[in-house]
Nucleic acid binder design. Structure first.
Lengths: 344, 344
DNA sequence: CCCTTAATTTAGATCGATCTAAAAACTTTC
DNA sequence: GAAAGTTTTTAGATCGATCTAAATTAAGGG
């Protein structure tokens, strides 16, 4: 039990080297698992490290070498479980690669995003996974590129010049529309909310496209409040038009959950006389009653993809930008029914 | 438009100093907003920084000074929205203090927690907010203390020797029991799941305590599967005893959501002929039907408290450990009804 | 046994900031 | 105008690792 005088100094590589009777340089090689060092020496150094309770000083290493083993992740929001799951996927892969995540929240505000990004640079991150705030300009990303900061955009697509991991939202909307159409629905509403960004537009376009290609009207796009608590009582907005819808597709499951409640309050029975499709397929979809039919976007997998892209980019900084766009999958449960023959 | 030969070198403090015709030391003082430097000189340096597009190198600074402006946060899980909100609260306060969060996921496994903690130390974090994995030993925490690593335990309480931010779970259980008792319920079940840790035990004890002090049986504690998807069909477990309960308190809202669905499947009508109380009061509580009565634990606020505790501790490393224990609040909605006079 | 080649080990400079202690510039005071 | 006291500025050492280039040791060949 060596009770060193731990007054002030931490154990340094030099201490280890002395203890093992080698030079600082050799000790350094051992840490980095270089094959250059002899087996016997290696184990001697390793033991010294153990005896002294040495901890690697990443900060010092980073100063000299270039890598900090640190990755920045910027999300617009943490209370939405969707982003939390995305973050989970990222963290798992980054961690497995021996790196560490520095987290920041942009609040979906470009100014905050600016300052958060600067802080990331100050901390010397090796790269950044960015879920761009609504209104992010293409120049913002290309500038980072010029600064040689490896970058991946996640979920929201700003420019082809930067790696991207996301979902084919348009295809997801097509699946939802196709399914409802197959049940005979023609008057289908689309309930949306939140800040406007690429993922938003892509979904809108996907919806319009799918509807029009079947000769259906894509005009029933209804904007719902962003406050979760207000969603239920906004269900009535769906019925303010002359020709009332028989089904609604939701921008995400948060809306689906809220509208489901609101429709119930209005006397509708979802899954019996009204149909509802969610988007994201979070865990609640299974525990709702009726079980929610939802387009699955698998946020954890997207996070993993984003992290993998970044790691590849770190290894090969100059390769041309890549995209990984996941295909979503419609998860059919109980919230949709065929449109009644002479209904409404 | 100075198109420097940006071949390899980044802009350093020395570059700035030269440009402004001062020494490296002076430039350093300007960055750190020292009052020692003259007004005219200061603005000259600041302009040079702007012109050259200088970014502070935190890593280099940390090596010499002691602070890294970095805080480690270790959570057991990221897919549970509860922890995501906690994290959100932490991030906001840490960010406002000019520091940055390094995130890690222990998966509620002590081995992973060990290695994650080591990584935090390697990265030289100024302090750590730890939500201890189930089974964490008191020695694990005290050892960190000996290493002079400022530490805060969040949500789960292991030892009084370390700062703590959490909720008074026992009081929450009392509120739930009191409320149900006031509606005439006597046979009240408690549905639990998940790994066993202080927050778990505290809730169990709170329940037993509250029940016994009213002369009621506290034996209806039912363990439910941890997989979210399996919760609904485990509702029947509640009724396997001879004297069937008329109400159930849930360990958290995830269970409440699942059981609500399962009870529905069994033909019960929650809020009409059966009562159900949740715990945590996440956003879904409001959008469920019937609206879920739930004990509110406000995870965001707990996160903020934890971060504040850590910041105070950084400023005053030797002060004695403090606790901030939030009082939960029962949020009454629609999922409970008085027990029918001659029911069941 | 010496020479070449390969395998290990090392001294010393270096990364970009901060710190200490002292010098330089500027005021005041007598 | 010199001494004393302030206010600003600075040279040079330093933090703890990595890198380069060279030194040392071991192995193989004739």
């Amino acid at each position: 039990m060596p009770s060193e005088d731990r007054k002030k100094s931490r154990v340094t590589l030099l201490d280890v080297a002395r203890r093992a009777n080698v030079s600082r340089a050799t000790a350094s090689l051992v840490i980095r698992k270089s094959p250059l060092v002899g087996a016997e020496t290696r184990s001697r150094v390793e033991e010294a490290m153990r005896e002294l309770g040495y901890v690697y000083n990443m900060g010092a290493a980073r100063l000299r070498a270039e890598r900090s083993h640190t990755v920045g992740v910027i999300v617009p929001n943490l209370t939405n479980p969707f982003f939390a799951e995305l973050l989970g996927g990222i963290e798992a892969v980054i961690d497995a690669a021996g790196m560490v995540v520095i987290l920041a929240n942009s609040g979906d505000l470009v100014d905050r995003q600016d300052m958060v990004m600067r802080r990331m640079r100050e901390h010397g991150v090796d790269g950044v996974i960015l879920c761009p705030a609504a209104g992010t300009e293409r120049e913002f990303l290309t500038r980072l590129l010029e600064w040689d900061l490896p970058l991946v955009q996640a979920l929201r697509h700003i420019t082809d010049e930067v790696d991207y991991a996301g979902v084919d939202y348009a295809a997801g909307m097509h699946q939802a529309v196709d399914y409802l159409a197959s049940l005979g629905h023609e008057r289908i509403a689309f309930a949306v909310h939140g800040p406007i960004h690429s993922a938003y537009n892509e979904r809108i376009e996907g919806f319009c496209d799918a509807m029009r290609s079947r000769g259906l009207s894509a005009e029933r796009i209804v904007r719902i409040p962003y406050q979760t608590a207000e969603i239920p009582r906004s269900a009535q907005l769906l019925f303010e038009q002359t020709e009332k819808p028989t089904a609604v597709i939701c921008f995400n499951d948060v809306i689906a959950l809220g509208l489901s409640a609101g429709l119930h309050d209005l006397g509708f029975k979802v899954g019996e006389n009204f149909s509802l499709v969610g988007f994201d397929d979070v865990t609640d979809a299974e525990t709702m009653r009726p079980r929610l039919t939802s387009v699955s976007t698998a946020p954890v997998a997207i996070g993993e993809n984003a992290a993998k892209l970044l790691i590849e980019r770190l290894e090969e900084p100059t390769r041309s930008p890549r995209k990984i766009v996941k295909q979503p999958k419609l998860h059919i449960r109980q919230s949709c029914v065929p449109v009644p023959k002479f209904a409404l």
